[in-house]
Design a protein around this nucleic acid. Sequence first.
DNA 1: TTATTTTGTGTGTTCGAGCACATTTTTTGT
DNA 2: ACAAAAAATGTGCTCGAACACACAAAATAA
Lengths: 346, 346
Amino acid sequence: MDKKYTIKDIAKMAGVSKGTVDRVLHNRGKVSPTALEKINEVLNVIDYEPNLIARNLKSTKVYRICVLLPDPEIDSYWLPCVNGIQEAITEFKAYSVVIETHYFNPESTKSFLNTNENIIKQSPDAVLIAPLFHKETLEIVKQYDELNIMVNTFNNQIEGESIKSFVGQDLYKSGRVAASLMNLILTDGQIAIIHIDESLKNAVHMQEKEKGFRNYFDEKKISGFSLTTLKLKHPNVETKFLAFVEENPNLKGIFITTSKAYQIASILSSIKTRKIAIIGYDLVEKNVNFLNQGLVHFLIHQNQKRQAYLGVSTLVEHFLFRKDIPETILLPIDIINVENASFYVS
Amino acid sequence: MDKKYTIKDIAKMAGVSKGTVDRVLHNRGKVSPTALEKINEVLNVIDYEPNLIARNLKSTKVYRICVLLPDPEIDSYWLPCVNGIQEAITEFKAYSVVIETHYFNPESTKSFLNTNENIIKQSPDAVLIAPLFHKETLEIVKQYDELNIMVNTFNNQIEGESIKSFVGQDLYKSGRVAASLMNLILTDGQIAIIHIDESLKNAVHMQEKEKGFRNYFDEKKISGFSLTTLKLKHPNVETKFLAFVEENPNLKGIFITTSKAYQIASILSSIKTRKIAIIGYDLVEKNVNFLNQGLVHFLIHQNQKRQAYLGVSTLVEHFLFRKDIPETILLPIDIINVENASFYVS
DNA sequence: TTATTTTGTGTGTTCGAGCACATTTTTTGT
DNA sequence: ACAAAAAATGTGCTCGAACACACAAAATAA
């Protein structure tokens, strides 16, 4: 039978007191060889699993976890993360965990560093960081390491041996997925890879996607396509893009590496004469609207909500239930079109 | 501050004993209006959340949950479910829950009923059923209702007011998703909708998918396509299918409504002269192999593992944490091609 | 041999909710 | 007015792990 054994059971079986069993289990010394052997004998026979409930009941320690991400009011890309964090808060509200969210300005490394200082003042047990700035992240992680504060990262992967865990997506592969879909929609023609981002802070982010996208076409040796990269920045997006479309009459497809596909779709909707396929990222409302209108063909779902949720929950479960924190959690690259979109928006 | 209040705290604040507070919280009567008001006043001010850990520690009741599904040795479609159930067992092994799996022969209604009898003998607190047989399911659910045993269903949706909760996918919509992908691969020609199933027990299942698939083409008024339905049964699959391909030179695409796409792909791989697109269901190993070879274009992921996991975990969380059981959980219809498949196979 | 560490072992309390039971207060009946 | 019943309230124990502390049994020193 799958009876649950308690420390008391073990003590009785070994003919010692529960205190001695406890000392053996946590090897905090002061146990005679005789007692040790007797207890180990019992432990070898039965399958002891400590009751996590009782363990957590006793400990009065309140674990504090801080999440650091860009202010969703500045970049709405991060809005789903807030929901994911909220979900984790709700799930663990019954336990002695406090989860705090801190925002920084994604345009400012200074804001990033300042917010980190504030977090350190809270002396949390762990932090979950969206590491937008490479160099600054490595610096700050070193600080956390020295203070013995556990660090988890999400959204974009930062190289560095001090970074021990990450939740996110394989961006290179997501570029390849986009390419495979584009190759299905089109048979030939010019394809533009467009990076739209006011702050080019997540350049690596977008480059990885482009690499994957280009690599797919290179590897397959598919002829008939020509790929062009286009970088658009805030005030001139429309004028520059319209000029580009004008200059390239053979443009048949567009791959947008950020969540701003709706900007391009909106501009294109005014040019009824051209039929251009669009593939973008993220199920933000405006993107889904254009998906429903048929102007955007596919969206790749980055599932930020789940990223944030998993980032927090792995930390919480580490403290509460002593679970290991996985080195990398790669979320699937969800392919979204107008038919299945409704199941992903939450 | 976000201090966690205990019953004792409330008692002190309201000037009563913890017993009285307990009676108010669980409204088990015998409380004077005066005390009730005092306690409610306190409860309105503070935000009391009972400590689930302490609650579960006390209760010695062991909840028993039985899962009923077809024997995966007979139909390997169900293998991922076993993993999903195993995942739930691991997650909840620290709690006083026992999760038992029972198999039935999917070809035999008698086996289905017999296994249910066995489950009833175990007098579980809840069951999760894969309700393959419509009529028999309704009967058995009535029995469970009378015995006050909670019932949850997964995989295929059964109509009936006694069925209170379901975890699965919208099959009609998944047919539409398949159609939209087919419409992307092909521009015209004949498309076959193939049902392969030794036992035609899940006919409704497959019909829903076909309906969705056909509806997509009907609704869009796309000309140039002709749809044909083909039913193939075990010993004659190859001969009948080959004859069909022979007779229909314009056949360009095949939609297989079961997880047996690999059977068709395998037969087609011998006919090198014909280029026919295949869309099927489920990430079984053989299907993924043909996906990698480029013979299968898309697979729709039904995510049986997660279906089973969620089916069990909602029940467990209902008992342990008093969470509500959602009426229907519709999992997203994941679109899989060769580029993103690796992220979904577990 | 007796005093004094050192080492080993057992006992008892804590955590918070839940519930049985004891005790007090109020109400009802005569 | 007083007993008896009913209602209201408080007390105390339980669950299992963790750990402090008390105590006992050897080991060493004087």
